[in-house]
Design a protein around this nucleic acid. Sequence first.
DNA 1: ACTTACGGTAAGCGAAAGCTTACATATCTT
DNA 2: AAGATATGTAAGCTTTCGCTTACCGTAAGT
Lengths: 99, 99
Amino acid sequence: MTNAFTALADPTRRTIFERVAAQPSAVGALAAELPVSRPAVSQHLRVLKDAGLVVDEAHGTRRVYRVRQEGLAELRAYLDQFWDQSLAAFRDLAEAEDA
Amino acid sequence: MTNAFTALADPTRRTIFERVAAQPSAVGALAAELPVSRPAVSQHLRVLKDAGLVVDEAHGTRRVYRVRQEGLAELRAYLDQFWDQSLAAFRDLAEAEDA
DNA sequence: ACTTACGGTAAGCGAAAGCTTACATATCTT
DNA sequence: AAGATATGTAAGCTTTCGCTTACCGTAAGT
């Protein structure tokens, strides 16, 4: 799950993820809209898939990729954890300064 | 803001962020707990700062880093956007399959 | 069956990232 | 004022990353 950050770090890969989020798409369709080759897109999708951010489904000879909601949920939960932590730490700090 | 993903992609840097979230800390204190050198920690903190995920405050000769809540908020908002998008796309797909 | 379309994989190359050591800067202490 | 403490910065090296081209497998159409 923590690998999702690595997956979304690259600009091209993030763009691919955005397109897939806007509309589930096949590899070739994505590559046609991007300034990189089709194999590059394929490799990026593999990284996104390994990170649990997308899933693929065979549709004839095409492979349609779509966002995996659970991946997004896990990522958000991870961030929320730090949100709570940092708020608590800030509160502790304020209390310490009062003393 | 989108650079926050790059900032959190590296494992060492993510650990640093976790420590800072748990408790605002100075550079040396962080480096003492990590398997990398102090300059490395300093460089990582610079990346996190540029990404808007942490802020630093001078405390004497030390520099205390803490989480920047706004950075986390922006990151979560970005993810929520995809959450909504992918749900809508999924709904559209289901409707299309009915037809 | 043969051809065409679509996509994953391997090899290799240039750019970028992360680390270390060495050096520079600023603040606190005595 | 001088030394000590704490941190940022520069240079260089090694590894990783993203890209391309070439190749292979699989499913559909004729």
